[in-house]
Design a protein around this nucleic acid. Structure first.
Lengths: 353, 353
DNA sequence: GGTTTTGCGGCAACAGGTTGCCGCCGGTTG
DNA sequence: CAACCGGCGGCAACCTGTTGCCGCAAAACC
């Protein structure tokens, strides 16, 4: 009946030692210090180990060495496809190095994030923080306890991997200018998101410099729903161009606008950030500033691993990954004036705010 | 400079014991066996522990008790949004019980799945297997070693949580019949997927019984790309109705068909399975057989936990979760014969297009 | 009052590995 | 031939908790 007939007694190095006629320490060394043991002896030990089905117990190894071979990966929302590739990249890099990933999802809450990190500290050897919702100081507290690499955030003295938000935003602005746009609304994500601040400032600064008038709405949740909410807010005075904190929000905005009869991209151009798979599936397809998420996941993990292995993290400079503007269907030429159908409330011209 | 100044020496029960003037065993009992220790003594120990910053070391606890408080969650593709809610549900249930989730993604490979499970066995207390790509026998081998609950698969003597594929398929067939369809093509997912077989058989059996001619193409990868590939294959002789193994494939099929000029749902009706978020974002929106994924994740975790705590898994019957047909824009009335090239807009799903 | 119970703290043996240090042995070197 | 050295196996301490068992003292019982 019971399928779970736990093998009550696990095979240990002591069993192997006895069976092979050597001391336990020799068995241990055979696996942990290859070379320290005579080749013949080692071969015999390995053989015996295999015969009687020995498997090293990671917990036993972890106690004296404090190497759990576990890495914590904190993300703010598993349901956000942005993380899919990041998780996968992390996973691949970890597996290659013989590590496993402990996944924690804080559901956009700094409190939950903190609690989860606190719980994980004693178990993992290091952390990769996918987008933190915590305050710098709190993050530093954790960083003091374990090697960590943060993504999409720059924090003095803590190694980080970020995307080139500024130049990504510039390409987006350039595109809008080329298309004849004169103003743009930025749909903000979580206040706690570092990237959100950077993106908005990059937009404002470069926008002003290049004659694009900018305005901001939000913050909203960085989800499809959040985007829809933002879209509804904008309906009173529809903008001609929108840049959203991320793709999910951009799609939400687009959905809300289209549902209320606006045409994308004829009346409104929309640009997102990240380039999640869904961006290619919606209609119109979404123009977006793409980030190499998978690569970032791998890089982040490899870096924590390097630090764990003793590499003193260098100059403290963030590692900047290039972004790429993917121009798709949601952006189009700005129409001067009149858009016939019952659009009494003409647009912009004297863009207020 | 270095931010990672690991406090090399952690505070142990021995430190607490010394500081509180008791034996280490008393400290241990204070936390592990409340009640076994005199209330006053316990209070003092707790106070001292807090003062000198004692935090129990999970590894130390895991060794003698073999309770790692870790659960393995195996999924076949993180990038498939189907798993998002499942992961989240699992996560929530685990956290509530004081457990953490070790995530493994086998990327649709039975070999990788096996390897990952093998690696995790010694570390976790139990497994939740999100859609296995392994053979029954291999799965049983693992099940013998650790408590496990499998999702979307029924396996004798191994507890499982599945969706009501059969009745879900029936509702889908009923819908197509109502809409006047006489034949349907099933787009198959991975051969190694148990659910795929069940769905197809349910379709064939019930279809035949209700006069719907069925045909199958595949297998294909259960991804957007897989769906596109299937769509291209079907182009030679376009079907009037398609049911795909899952939403991602359905969307891929839809994309391929629409791209080559076919109208959905006017010329082809498409139905998926799962109800991932993206299904509501594409145009036309996707009709699908929805599964309560979050709930399933929680249920699965709670069940493994129960088994770990000693509950002998009951009759071996799979736990069946209800499905719900979400009728959306991708399904429509079958057109008898000729569809004039310019069918213009019109139609049921008259949403913006 | 004597004896049995009960409450509770301590001792020490684990759990399963790792590793510093010692010692044996055969080969080098002078 | 003696002193030295390198290779290699074993001993035992150690990592951090848990827990069976013992013993002592106070409480409960007859």
């Amino acid at each position: 009946m019971g399928v779970t007939d736990q093998p009550r007694t696990q095979v240990t190095i002591y069993d192997v030692a006895r069976a092979a006629g050597v001391a336990p320490s020799t068995v241990s060394r055979t696996f942990a210090r290859p070379g320290r043991v005579n080749a013949e002896t080692a071969a015999r030990v390995r053989q015996v180990a295999e015969d009687i089905g020995y498997r090293a117990n990671p917990v036993g190894q972890a106690l004296p060495t404090s190497q759990t071979h576990l890495l914590g990966l904190m993300i703010s929302d598993v349901a956000n496809p942005f993380y899919s590739q990041l998780i996968r990249g992390a996973q691949i890099a970890a597996t290659q190095a013989g590590y496993e990933i402990l996944l924690a999802d804080c559901r956009e809450s700094g409190t939950r994030e903190r609690a989860a990190l606190e719980r994980l500290v004693p178990v993992v050897e290091g952390f990769v923080i996918g987008s933190s919702r915590m305050a710098d100081s709190a993050l530093r507290t954790i960083a003091k306890q374990r090697p960590m690499v943060v993504l999409n955030r720059s924090l003095r003295d803590v190694p980080s991997v970020i995307t080139d938000n500024v130049s990504g935003m510039h390409t987006a602005v350039d595109l809008l200018r080329e298309l004849g746009h004169e103003s743009v609304v930025y749909v903000a994500g979580p206040e706690a998101s570092w990237a959100d601040g950077v993106r908005f400032r990059a937009l404002r600064d470069y926008g002003t410099a290049s004659g694009l008038h900018t305005h901001k709405v939000g913050p909203f949740l960085p989800t499809f729903e959040g985007g829809m909410a933002a879209g509804r807010v904008m309906l009173e005075k529809p903008p001609t161009a929108v840049i959203a904190y991320n793709d999910l929000m951009a799609i939400g905005v687009m959905h809300a606008l289209i549902t209320s009869g606006l045409k994308v991209p004829e009346q409104v151009s929309i640009i997102g950030f990240d380039d999640i798979l869904t961006s290619q599936l919606v209609l119109p397809t979404l123009t977006t500033v793409a980030a190499p998420t998978r690569q970032m996941g791998m890089t982040a993990v490899n870096n924590v691993l390097a630090i764990i292995k003793g590499a003193r993290h260098g100059g403290g400079e963030a590692l900047v990954m290039p972004t790429q503007l993917k121009v798709r269907g949601s952006t189009g030429q700005r129409r001067r004036k009149r858009v016939s159908p019952a659009l009494g409330t003409t647009m912009v011209s004297g863009s207020a705010s």
